[in-house]
């Protein structure tokens, strides 16, 4: 019964996202075409440096990952800022389904655009830039990808809880988590280059281990891994559990705090 309601709610909140994408196709321009051009700038950086072809694949993977990162951070976590503004947050909070299905619905609804963006990056990378992509073990690849995704969405939910209490401040916080995250998580280069300890510290962001793991699976002899793949899988599993549990608790905690402080509605 509760599960069914949660599922209905996920579907309900996903709906405006999916029809929105169809009714206002302008996102194809500003959320797909233009940002992808930005990703490929890094391909040319490596070309200008005469780097081996595998580096092109690094960029492609980083570029595809950005699509997921943006979906989690902007279309899910920071979305509460806008919902609060519009007065929807109160209605969501009052609804018996709770906030988690609503967050999942936002993410799910944004998934279409996200997947398209990631797929286009990979396709253009392979077709136009001849990025070498070879996967040595598909099961491992899929496992790392899935764990990474769960941990990532858990992290996003965790951040969304901050928006229950804060508005503009949390928004700037998410804005901060762009270039610096692309840097420390090694979106465009092997994270090992930052040094073992910086890489380890950056592993709190699940993308770090996920990208490094996937790259090791793809280029076993070429890629300088941070840790052995086995360890990275374990680490990701731990992060997935950690962030999901933490997010649920944090949402409950912040909801209570927001009710206490009267911060669920927007006051001019």
């Amino acid at each position: 019964m509760r599960l069914q309601r949660a599922w209905y709610a996920i579907r309900g909140r996903a709906y405006p996202r999916t029809v929105g994408a169809a009714r206002e196709p302008s996102w194809i321009f500003y959320d797909l075409a233009l940002p992808i051009l930005g990703v490929f700038a890094f391909v040319f950086v490596y070309r200008a440096l005469d780097a081996p072809a595998q580096f092109t694949s690094y960029v492609i993977m980083g570029g595809a990952t950005i699509a997921f990162w943006m979906n989690v951070m902007w279309n899910m976590a920071a979305q509460f800022y806008w919902e609060k503004h519009q007065g929807n947050l109160e209605l969501y909070m009052m609804a018996p389904c709770g906030l988690v299905p609503i967050l999942l619905g936002m993410a799910w609804g944004g998934m279409l655009a996200t997947t398209v963006r990631a797929a286009v990056v990979v396709a253009v990378g392979i077709l136009l830039f001849k990025a070498p992509l070879a996967v040595s073990s598909w099961p491992l690849f899929v496992l790392i990808f899935t764990l990474g995704l769960i941990a990532l969405y858990g992290l996003g939910m965790f951040f969304s809880s901050l928006f229950l209490l804060w508005g503009r401040e949390a928004w700037h916080m998410v804005s901060l988590l762009q270039e610096p995250v692309y840097l420390v998580s090694g979106f465009y280069f092997p994270v090992r280059a930052l040094g073992l300890w910086v890489g380890m510290a950056a592993s709190i962001i699940p993308i770090t281990l996920a990208l490094d793991g996937l790259r090791q699976v793809m280029f076993p002899s070429f890629h300088p891994g941070l840790l052995p793949v086995r360890w990275e899988v374990l680490g990701l599993a731990a992060l997935a559990v950690l962030f999901v549990v933490l997010a649920l608790r944090m949402l409950r905690f912040m909801e209570r705090l927001a009710r206490q402080e009267g911060r669920l509605s927007f006051r001019w």
Binding site: M1, Q4, R5, Y8, A9, R11, G12, R13, Y15, P16, V19, G20, R23, E24, Q86, G87, N88, E90, L91, Y92, M94, A95, P96, C97, P101, I102
Partner: peptide, 29 residues
């Protein structure tokens, strides 16, 4: 319970009236 406030601008402008109402009904299972 439910609540309706004056001057409320809830929901999403891109949806039709029926879609928007359907969406909210889904949060109640």
């Amino acid at each position: 319970i439910s609540m309706v406030s004056g001057g409320e601008h809830s929901g999403y402008g891109l949806l039709t009236v029926r879609e928007q109402l359907w969406m909210f009904s889904q949060f109640y299972g």
